[in-house]
């Protein structure tokens, strides 16, 4: 098929990647009904080595999604329930003095896991939040001058309630930028909700989930994603999108260079999961809302403050 094309990723790998993507979708889809797009994006985010923020009202399956992903990927999973009286030590761990050998010993906190679910992150104080965010940024924890690396891959799924709920400390923009994607789950469709009501508890299904890939396989996939072909036409498109967010009067603040990098990386991973040898504009469009949505700040009173700003951008920027 790609005979006449200088493809960088080989065909078998692409085939595998696509099958794997479908498998993850299918498995996780058994637990979370009717959220194929979100599942795929979450997996893409993980593959791209970024962290995921899920923002929605309680009870739509945020936690379930995180657990299901961990299960199918065969990775260790820890959950941190954020509360308002939480301290950084509750997240990263602490040094405890041991009388036996008269030394401090580090007791790792719950953050030391492959997949960490930071539940309701906006309910804790900024101090505790930043402890986690630092760990996300550095991929390591430093305590008393000692550095403790976090496991690889390290993937944080943070959930937060919509900001206007009482007793919350919303994440500042600079910290939102640390998350590769932000997703909302939304309510299930009527038909699916009926199925949900009729069926057994979804949590029980979690135990049935079989790992479809190990961390070595994940690394291979990530390497393949980095080798996908990026055409000039596609980079033109990405730059046009970024330029638009910076120049338009719709936004106070456009996409940062990091945001642009994240956009390309996410699009690469999605393209890989679709089995494309190169990144298509469709891939960029598919991840754009999730990658850019939380980084764009709509100017008050502009159309973007009301309508979906990411869609406004996608509709306005022509595909070259």
């Amino acid at each position: 098929m790609a005979r006449n094309v200088t493809a960088l990723a080989n065909t078998d790998q692409l085939q595998q990647a696509r099958q794997l993507g479908e498998q993850v979708n299918r498995e996780v889809g058994q637990v979370i009904l009717g959220k194929q797009t979100e599942i795929e994006l979450a997996f893409t985010c993980l593959l791209a080595g970024g962290h995921l923020l899920i923002e929605d009202v309680p009870g739509v399956g945020k936690t379930l999604l995180a657990r299901a992903l961990a299960a199918v990927l065969g990775l260790s999973f820890r959950r941190i329930q954020f509360t308002s009286d939480m301290l950084p030590a509750d997240i990263i761990g602490m040094s405890v003095y041991e009388q036996d050998n008269a030394r401090f010993r580090f007791h790792p906190g719950p953050v030391f896991a492959h997949i960490v679910l930071a539940d309701e992150i906006n309910r804790s104080t900024p101090k505790a939040q930043s402890a986690l965010l630092e760990a996300m940024e550095e991929n390591q924890v430093t305590l008393d001058g000692e550095t403790h690396p976090l496991p690889v891959p390290f993937f944080v799924i943070a959930t937060q309630n919509p900001l206007h709920q009482a007793g919350t400390y919303p994440l500042p923009e600079s910290q939102l930028d640390r998350f590769l994607m932000r997703l909302g789950l939304g309510y299930p469709a009527e038909v699916l909700e009926r199925k949900l009501l009729r069926g057994e508890d979804r949590r029980l299904l979690l135990t049935d989930l079989q790992p479809v890939i190990d961390s070595a396989g994940l690394r291979t996939l990530q390497a393949a994603a980095r080798e996908l072909f990026l055409s000039d036409a596609l980079l033109d498109y990405v730059q046009a999108l970024v330029r638009y967010t910076r120049q338009s009067t719709l936004f106070e603040l456009g996409l940062s260079p990091r945001g642009a990098q994240d956009l390309v990386m996410a699009a690469r991973c999605l393209a890989l999961l679709h089995g494309h040898p190169g990144v298509h504009p469709e891939d960029v469009k598919a991840v754009f809302a999730a990658v850019a949505g939380h980084r764009l700040q709509a100017r008050p009173g502009s159309a973007a403050a009301v309508r979906d700003p990411a869609r406004l951008v996608l509709e306005s920027v022509p595909i070259p």
């Binding site: 790609a2 094309v5 055409s231 036409a233 494309h276 040898p277 990144v279």
Partner: peptide, 8 residues
């Protein structure tokens, strides 16, 4: 798509 985005 193949010609434009998947290689030279």
């Amino acid at each position: 798509l193949r010609l434009r985005y998947e290689g030279i």
